[in-house]
Design a binder for these strands. Sequence first.
DNA 1: TTGCACTTTGATAGCGCTATCATTACGCTC
DNA 2: GAGCGTAATGATAGCGCTATCAAAGTGCAA
Lengths: 349, 349
Amino acid sequence: MEKPVRRKGDAVTIHEVARRAGVSPMTVSRVINGNSNVRDTTRETVMRAVRELNYTPNPAARSLAAAQGTRIALIYTNPSGAYLSELLVGALAGVSRTAAQLVLDTWDNVSPAAERAAARKLAKSVAGVILPPPLCESKAILSELVAAKVPVVAIASGRFQANISCVRIDDFRASREMTEHLLGFGHTRIGYIKGNPNQTASALRYEGFQAALAEAGLAVDTSLVQQGYFTYRSGLEAAEKLLNRKRPPTAIFASNDDMAAAAISVAHRRGLEVPRDLSVVGFDDTPIATTVWPELTTVRQPIASMAESSIELLLRSIRQRPGETRIVVDHVVAHELVKRDSVAPPRKS
Amino acid sequence: MEKPVRRKGDAVTIHEVARRAGVSPMTVSRVINGNSNVRDTTRETVMRAVRELNYTPNPAARSLAAAQGTRIALIYTNPSGAYLSELLVGALAGVSRTAAQLVLDTWDNVSPAAERAAARKLAKSVAGVILPPPLCESKAILSELVAAKVPVVAIASGRFQANISCVRIDDFRASREMTEHLLGFGHTRIGYIKGNPNQTASALRYEGFQAALAEAGLAVDTSLVQQGYFTYRSGLEAAEKLLNRKRPPTAIFASNDDMAAAAISVAHRRGLEVPRDLSVVGFDDTPIATTVWPELTTVRQPIASMAESSIELLLRSIRQRPGETRIVVDHVVAHELVKRDSVAPPRKS
DNA sequence: TTGCACTTTGATAGCGCTATCATTACGCTC
DNA sequence: GAGCGTAATGATAGCGCTATCAAAGTGCAA
């Protein structure tokens, strides 16, 4: 049995839909592109035909005809690479339905001038950009991209910014919930390891922590709060300081998983068992959360589906007619508290 | 200053190349597709024009005209996901120059029957497949794909298999070198944590370890060899056993980074300092190698560039005319011994 | 030189879709 | 109901590339 010749005849085209609906192919095209200027009744007829024939537009033809070299850039920096693979998986999923191409690049520029230059160059070669943190916090990059009228989606950025679409979770609320979870176990002396101050999310997470404490009528003991930088190394140091105290905390809330993993490691080196002697929780649910032992209780950001949404958003922006006002949305998606094995009630002492 | 209208004129087309080279567009097409039946002198003229104009084929047009929905699948399973992001980065880089689209899928089938069914279905929808371990060791998948005449590239698989192209490092040699490195520091009692037996690479790495020992005139002490499964958890257990011995090893060679990281963690819990009291080395150079402290000495597999080569290989296979014999190559790329901070001479005892 | 088989090149016709402009239908004022 | 402006639809012409087949060139034997 030969493999069928791929050429020809395997897919239903816009013409067949048009014929079935009794309209011209152009009208079908307008309908499937959500174009206005189509009478409602016509639209419905067409849509029915589309459904009946199970029609899917051919992405290649589409982008060829539209001459929109739909290249979408995803720029990242190494530091934030923790969830890179999930980001890529999601972006790829979003792109694979369309003719768009995903192009990757790493920027480790330090100076705003370098970022500015890179952004300007990028703006010329792609139709849209997805920016994870910390890049999406850079004024230099953002202003350059916005000036060049290239649609941008900031992903997992803490806060919504003018002119930039944004797909994110509610860091504040997630962090508050996690703190409440800890509180619910009876912890009252909770150490907190802050994230890198160059990211809005760090502040938001800390605020969520404070808010939960305040609601529970507890004061924030600032000596139990350490600055971290989202790296394992910084988590190591912060946890050392926390556990060196005369009255060490009974739980540590690290604002990402890498630092939480580091806290576990420090605890182990001191002969403390987790969670019996110390509860530890993280944030993000990156692979390391399930690598370490015990597995981390953490907050799951659905990075993959967030990336997928970002692509869709971007594509919609790109497809816009030149005249229309830019689509700018703030898309807050649901997070999830993932309970695993790193939390227990505080030990009686 | 308005952004130039994207439509038209921004890219150099095959016609311009043709005019410059003084041939027809068709001939250019043949050249860039590596088609035979083009005189060498003609080919060179065309290639020069291509270079001078910095021409890149338009992927959309290409796949539209060729009606070859050049979709390349990358299938992975969670367990091997350690270097997934690097794999994706490389594959994407390879793909971004061509019309091909990368589609991802996760298979966590256990039964060969399920794998067989999935492979059969896959064969119908894509033009080529990239298979990282352990999937590339599955007879069921492989035979199904080969039967369907879908080109396959096994990446980072230990050994070359008939009918399947393969891009890999020399696991045996890399492992032998790493062992020699340890030996060079004066270690003679080296613990070894084996990899998952479902992968050829595990055996190869172990053989390399044995070979180096044999060359140095040392006998392999099988009580210093533990079975692991490439997971952090299994590394934990193996390291425990190793360090529980009356005369524990002075160094541990884990056959991947996750298990090496686990070994470090176990050492720390026992108050052992790495590398002062125990040297630990890993394999693969995944992100965890630079996350843990101290950073791991390990063997770097250039996964990204391997993935890129795989794509190129696949594309070449796909572009083949139906008649020709399948291209099957065994591409062994160079590895690298990355020396970091987890190795020191054995402590005098 | 002619004839024949084979290699190399080119002309033509789309791939499936959308931009553009022309055409027709509709709604309204006067 | 004529006249006009706007909304809805259609006809045409490609987007950049490759499949296909026809044409031209090449080599070799007779």
